[in-house]
Amino acid sequence: MLEVSGLSAAYGAVAALEDVHLRVAGDQVVCLLGANGAGKTTTLNCISGIVPVRRGRVLFEGEDVTNRLPEQIVRRGVVQVPEGREIFPRLSVEDNLRLGGWTQRRHRSWRDDLARVHDLFPRLRERAHQPAGTLSGGEQQMLMVGRALMARPRLLMFDEPSLGLSPLLVRQLFAIIARIHRAGLPILLVEQNARIALAASAYGYILENGEITLHGPADRLAADARVRHAYLGG
């Protein structure tokens, strides 16, 4: 499905990623773990076409999408739910969602897509006409997930979805991620919270200083002494 090989990226002279390999198979949740600044977000942004790839390739469904424009990558179905509050604050909640479907705007089916997102997040239906900037942090996170679904993704990438959310909201969000996955969508999950990410994933990669240092099935990673020590608090 998604295959990243030999990926390198840099900000100016500072190397951010060095020879990163990772794969997401057709029906998996795969997580990418690592400390702050390890290069997790950069990896996603390289795949999304926001950060230029210096060396290496990104293949999606067998097609080379390295360094394509972000809009071309979204149109192919690789959609990112970014970290933080990356919404359009002064547009209504509904307009935020509609713009999520920008690449699908010529299709008549956006109303169905919107109805599906509203079923998944009833809160967004209640708040459809208020400015997105007035939503709470958790609601904004939901809005970004809904917005990504409006693009009819074939692979969904989450960047730190748990960041800044209460434990209750994190549980709700991961329940929704699991539900989206069960509906048949492969997921690449970037997280600092290794415990919850490994529990949700089938396979995991550990990124340290821009390089993949360890990878394997999620249950084996969760049992690995080094992972337990560095990421699971003992």
């Binding site: 999304s48 076409g49 926001i50 424009l69 972000p70 809009e71 990558i73 979204v74 149109r75 959609v79 990112q80 970014p82 990356e86 919404i87 359009f88 604050p89 002064r90 547009l91 307009d95 935020n96 509609r98 713009l99 999520g100 920008w102 690449t103 705007r105 917005r147 990504a148 693009a151």
Partner: peptide, 24 residues
Amino acid sequence: TLPGKALRATSQNARAAALVGIPV
């Protein structure tokens, strides 16, 4: 209009606009 809203979205948050596939 949707293109008008896309323009406003781009001016409010260019990064988010790129990530939803709006040609910035």
